[in-house]
């Protein structure tokens, strides 16, 4: 079956990135949408660092290449009209009152970056940032999001420029399978603001001492990130990635590509 093109709305930056990487395929992609073979070729032609830099743009393209079905609203039980901002653009939807924000992002808006790990608030894979606070999208009903501002992993980069936390996770290899990573990164981004605000945690030495900003020790980072479980156990590298963004310049990268593997 031919896939439908959804690329008339490529941003300038995305178009440029694709053009640079695969000039020959550009015409075809624009007319018929991105296909698996384009993606594989993309891997073949890009060096890893280049790929990393373009990863997000590509992830957005892949997400968009799935046509999102508009559900007829008469089929939606207890339909609620909601309008909220997702990664900077306003979304108006009719949702079943049972629909969680996580399912809405993934199933209705095609933003599959946020992951469903447990669906019960126990793992943090679904973490997104709502009105500047990190929350669990699996326990948030979409109907409660009216007028709110939602940021997902797809919305952290600026064009093809990764968010510093994304870049740091790559540099420090803060993942293995990657399933928990979007949640880890969203959580860590919000944590940086909490630290600037001087928020306390259970391991804060003395909660009565209110500081303007807190300097996070490894122990503080671990406690404050405990709501994000990583089955692969990438914790030491996650802590390193966060420490670097938090301002510790001395964090050394612990891995390197073996010669000849790129």
């Amino acid at each position: 079956m031919e896939e439908k093109s959804t690329f008339s709305d490529l941003t300038e930056a995305e178009r440029k990135a694709l053009e640079e990487l695969m000039p020959d395929e550009m015409g075809e992609i624009i007319s018929s949408g991105i296909k698996r073979r384009h993606f594989l070729k993309l891997f073949a032609v890009t060096g890893t660092s280049l790929l990393a830099a373009n990863l997000l743009g590509i992830e957005q393209l892949m997400a968009r290449s799935v046509p999102i079905e508009e559900q007829p609203s008469e089929l939606i039980e207890n339909g609620i009209n909601v309008s909220f901002e997702v990664n900077g653009s306003t979304q108006k939807l009719t949702v079943d009152s049972r629909m969680t924000l996580l399912d809405t992002l993934r199933e209705r808006l095609g933003l599959t970056g946020s992951k469903k790990g447990c669906d019960h608030g126990q793992c943090g894979a679904c973490t997104v940032i709502v009105d500047d606070k990190r929350v669990l999208s699996c326990l948030t009903l979409a109907a409660t999001c009216e007028d709110k501002r939602v940021t997902t992993i797809e919305g952290l980069a600026t064009g093809n420029e990764l968010h510093p936390m994304q870049a740091s996770f790559i540099k420090h290899d803060g993942f293995q399978c990657g399933y928990c990573t979007p949640g880890q990164i969203c959580s860590a981004v919000a944590l940086m603001d909490e630290a600037k605000n001087g928020d306390a945690s259970y391991v804060t030495a003395n909660v009565r001492e209110k500081k303007s900003a807190v300097n996070l020790s490894n122990e503080e980072i671990r406690e404050r990130m405990s709501g994000n479980i990583c089955r692969c156990g990438a914790y030491p590298n996650i802590v390193n990635a966060i420490r670097e963004v938090h301002g510790d310049k001395a964090v050394a990268q612990v891995w390197q590509f073996a010669d000849g593997t790129i």
């Binding site: 943090g124 990190r134 929350v135 669990l136 944590l191 909490e194 306390a200 909660v207």
Partner: peptide, 12 residues
């Protein structure tokens, strides 16, 4: 409060 749940859950 800070001993309970996670940062995400305490925000909600």
């Amino acid at each position: 409060i800070l001993a309970g749940a996670s940062a995400q859950i305490r925000n909600m």
